[in-house]
């Protein structure tokens, strides 16, 4: 009995041509960016989830071994350290609550809506995409958990990236250091607005900063909320290099991300505002923001 493709040589070349055409069509759809393939990717992506978990096993084993072989003293020291950290954070939370209330009251005086707290979801990293020229990860929460494309992802220290693709139970996250990624930021010290772009393995640059702008090394960049994708006020990075050439229109400004992009195993997906959020309101944009 001949199997399905047992006809061998005869029909193989037309088949290869046909498959090449099929691939070209798929790539064309991808290039057009219309998202028609999203459902297909979602289904296929759900099928390969077990593979992603197996591939993550070396890290799981390492975590297990580290925990298994840590001594009682080490654990106690770590426990004490965490308790100190908790105390510090509790005090800070208490303070920030008071400031939040004051802020809300002031915003009321200005007739602008108060900022609502964000609803977040904890997710664990299960895969780092293997192509080293791209900065993307896969997390273990998907559309079934309420994750949707474009939602921002943060970790405990800053903005991590945004959701680029979801399957039922996993999501692919584009990191802020990916060359295809940019975040609208504001310099915390001087309120200058700019765009922080990823540079892949190379330096990450803050774009469109005029040479005369007040920006120096060590300035902290926080998300500005412009562009309506990233909520206002999350730390994005720190300026680590400023080269100002008066003959050039823009200064060359480098930054490093605040988030522990290559170390965090747990991240937070910002699902949106907790209470009735009305899109279309400019609640994230400062009424009177002055650059320079």
């Amino acid at each position: 009995m001949e199997s399905l493709f047992g006809a061998r040589q005869a029909g193989v070349r037309p088949l290869l041509v046909g498959l090449t055409l099929a691939s070209c069509v798929l790539l064309g759809i991808e290039k057009a960016g219309v998202g028609w393939l999203q459902p297909v990717r979602s289904v296929l992506g759900t099928v390969v989830v077990p593979v992603q978990y197996v591939a993550d096993a070396p890290y799981k084993i390492k975590d297990f071994l580290v925990e298994f072989f840590s001594t009682r003293d080490e654990l106690m020291a770590r426990n004490a350290e965490l308790r100190r950290e908790l105390l510090r954070l509790n005090i800070e939370t208490a303070r920030s609550t008071a400031i939040q209330i004051e802020n809300d009251r002031l915003r009321e005086l200005f007739n602008s809506r108060s900022r609502l707290p964000d609803d977040v979801l904890i997710a664990e990293l299960i895969e780092v995409l293997p192509d080293p020229s791209r900065q993307e990860i896969v997390i273990d929460k998907g559309s079934a958990d309420g994750v949707a494309i474009d939602q921002p992802v943060i970790d405990s220290t800053g903005v991590f990236g945004q959701v680029a693709e979801t399957t039922l139970i996993t999501s692919r996250v584009l990191l802020i250091t990916d060359p295809a990624h940019s975040v609208p930021v504001v310099v915390e010290r001087s309120d200058v607005r700019a765009i922080a772009s990823g540079g892949g393995k190379g330096p990450h640059l803050v774009q469109y900063v005029p040479s005369v702008t007040d920006i120096v090394e060590g300035d902290r960049l926080v998300s500005s909320g412009l562009g309506r994708r990233f909520p206002y006020g999350y730390p994005v990075g720190v300026v680590n290099e400023v080269v100002k050439d008066r003959t050039q229109q823009y200064a060359q400004v480098g930054w490093t991300p605040s988030a522990a992009l290559d170390r965090s195993r747990y991240v937070l997906v910002v699902l949106g505002k907790r209470e009735g959020d009305e899109p279309g309101e400019s609640d994230n944009i400062e009424p009177a923001e002055s650059a320079d």
């Binding site: 088949l15 498959l19 691939s23 798929l26 991808e30 990717r41 296929l44 593979v51």
Partner: peptide, 29 residues
């Protein structure tokens, strides 16, 4: 050769594509 041909390889490629987050059809071809 009677078990694995361009067609089955192309279909298998789709799964590799979603796994590595690449464009669909690229690994397939």
């Amino acid at each position: 050769p009677s078990r694995v041909g361009p067609m089955s390889a192309w279909i298998a490629g789709l799964f590799f594509d979603v796994l590595v987050g690449g464009p669909l059809g690229l690994t397939g071809i």
